Computed example of a mutant assay.
Amino acid sequence: MVAGFRSESAIRMLSRLDDGALMRGAFLLLLALTTVFLLIDVREIATKRQLPTFDPSHPMPFLPPAGTKADPDRPTVNPASPIEDLAKPMTFNLGPGGCLLAEGTLDLGAALRFAREVEQRGEYIKTVELNSPGGSVDDALAISRLIREKRLNTKVASRALCASSCPIILSGGVERLAESDAVVGVHQLFSDSNDRPTPQEAMSAAQSATARIARHLDAMGISAGLWFHALETPPDHLYYLTAQEMADFRLTTKAAARAKKKN
């Protein structure tokens, strides 16, 4: 009897609801389910995509052959430097003609070492030559800003590597050059921290970093299309940029100048 009474009460209550109320209820239920699934996805990203950047026991995910080439017919170019050298913390060595070679992984503190190098030898430095698989985004941004502030040029030599966050540094040059067979590529952000952030913290950090990078590239005069390729490429792959793409995105200035003359 009690069960029958409750069923009749529920039926009378539902009959008093109009179609609009039912639609609103269904919408709120779907919204709640979508939120739950989104949090689950973000939690998986936060816990699974903690890819080690500096641990030599793990292969670097952004080095060839893993990757996506903009031009499938272009032969793969392997960086000339051994992986073991690229995995070391970034060093700065001043060579002939005022060319400062920045080589290795952007570890935390690389920007401070670069600033000290510029302070000590700034009058001799004309060009910053890059050979790096990337690393700390904050250090890349700081180095790039200082390069532009000091009105220096940037360069990626033939068969040198400039990947992940390294193109952020390349963007800081007043003049920017990528020689033939330079390996330049981008991919999504990832964390090398052992911390396990909450889904909200992971999403907030990713959005904040994306905004800072996009704002910086815009200030350097780089087209937003470059960052779109990064956002679309998983962190264990690399989107290889062609010379034409780098010119179109204004990541390189000399190539862009040559392209304009042809038109």
Rank of each mutant, 00 (worst) to 15 (best):
D195W: 06
I169W: 07
C166H: 03
S193C: 03
A182V: 08
S171M: 12
S208C: 05
Q188G: 08
A178W: 07
T198G: 14
G185W: 11
V184M: 13
P197V: 12
L189P: 00
H187R: 02
V184I: 15
A211I: 05
S191G: 10
C166P: 05
G172E: 15
S193F: 07
D181R: 14
E179H: 06
A163V: 12
C166T: 06
A209P: 00
G173K: 01
S193I: 03
D192I: 04
I213Y: 02
P199K: 06
T198M: 04
C166R: 04
V183L: 12
V186L: 10
N194H: 08
Q200I: 13
D181H: 12
Q188T: 04
E175W: 02
A182I: 07
A178C: 10
Q200S: 08
D192Q: 06
L170P: 03
G185D: 04
L189N: 05
Q200V: 15
T210S: 13
E179Q: 07
G173Q: 02
G173W: 01
A202V: 07
L177F: 06
A206E: 08
E201H: 09
E201P: 01
R196G: 01
D181S: 08
Q188I: 00
P197F: 09
V183F: 11
I213C: 02
S165E: 07
R212W: 00
A205V: 08
R176D: 09
S204A: 15
S180G: 00
G173C: 03
I169Y: 14
F190C: 01
V186I: 13
P199S: 07
L170Q: 08
D181G: 00
S180M: 04
S165G: 00
S180L: 07
V174C: 01
E201Y: 03
S208H: 12
R196Y: 09
A205N: 07
Q207I: 09
N194R: 13
Q188S: 08
A205T: 09
R212I: 00
N194W: 03
A211M: 10
I168M: 05
S180E: 15
A206K: 11
D195F: 11
A209E: 09
E201D: 13
G185K: 10
G172F: 09
R196V: 13
L177Y: 04
D195V: 02
S165N: 04
E201M: 10
R212V: 01
V174K: 10
L170V: 09
S208P: 00
S204G: 05
M203H: 05
H187I: 11
G172W: 12
G172D: 13
L170G: 13
P197C: 12
G172M: 14
P167C: 05
R212N: 06
G172S: 10
A211G: 04
A209W: 08
A163K: 03
L170Y: 01
E179C: 05
G173A: 03
S191T: 14
A182M: 11
I168C: 03
Q188D: 15
I213W: 04
N194D: 08
